[in-house]
């Protein structure tokens, strides 16, 4: 053993050296670096997860926006359809109103005309009766009872008109 130099104090010194190195490397190398590696790993994992989450969120909101757009489009279409319907109805109503008014106007006009004509005819008839009485007076030269005359002529005219109408 002496030949290759095994020496207890020296061996102890080397053991102490190893322990010192082990401790110092533990403090200065392994602990900080391992901590940093773990930290970085955790951080990367976090970031990846976050990115995934954000991606998911983006997809979600995109879907939501799409849905919103779809509903908005549908609503718009519904509104347009409704508006068209209302317009149609209004047009219809206006047409109807106009027609009714025209009709009523026409009816009114017709009754007016009828009335005017009746009145005119009546007047004409009066006039005619008066003229006829006057003429008859002149022709006959005899004063008849005015009332009788009138009645007589009225009867004649009545016959005439009935005759005309039939």
């Amino acid at each position: 053993m002496e030949g290759i130099g095994i020496n207890l104090p020296l061996l102890l010194a080397f053991v102490i050296n190893f322990v010192i190195l082990f401790t110092l490397l533990g403090i200065f190398l392994y602990k900080p670096v391992l901590k940093m590696l773990d930290e970085r790993q955790a951080k990367i994992k976090d970031s990846m997860e976050q990115a995934e989450q954000i991606k998911e969120q983006a997809a979600h909101s995109e879907e939501q926006i799409k849905a919103h757009l779809e509903t908005a489009r549908k609503e718009g279409q519904a509104i347009i359809a409704q508006a068209t319907q209302i317009g149609e109805r209004l047009k219809e109503e206006a047409k109807e109103g106009a027609r009714q008014e025209a009709e009523s106007l026409m009816a009114k006009a017709r009754t007016e005309i009828q009335r005017d004509r009746d009145k005119t005819i009546e007047e004409l008839r009066q006039e005619f009766v008066d003229i006829a009485i006057l003429a008859a007076e002149k022709v006959i030269n005899e004063t008849l009872d005015r009332e009788k005359h009138r009645k007589l002529i009225g009867e004649v005219l009545e016959e005439n008109t009935t005759f005309k109408q039939s």
Partner: peptide
Amino acid sequence: FTITNTLIASWLTIIVLVTLFYACTRKMKL
């Protein structure tokens, strides 16, 4: 106690290793 040349060499190794890695890990950043 005899300080041998190998013991000195092993001290040198320890000094080199510790100094190097101390310098490396003095300011740890992400």
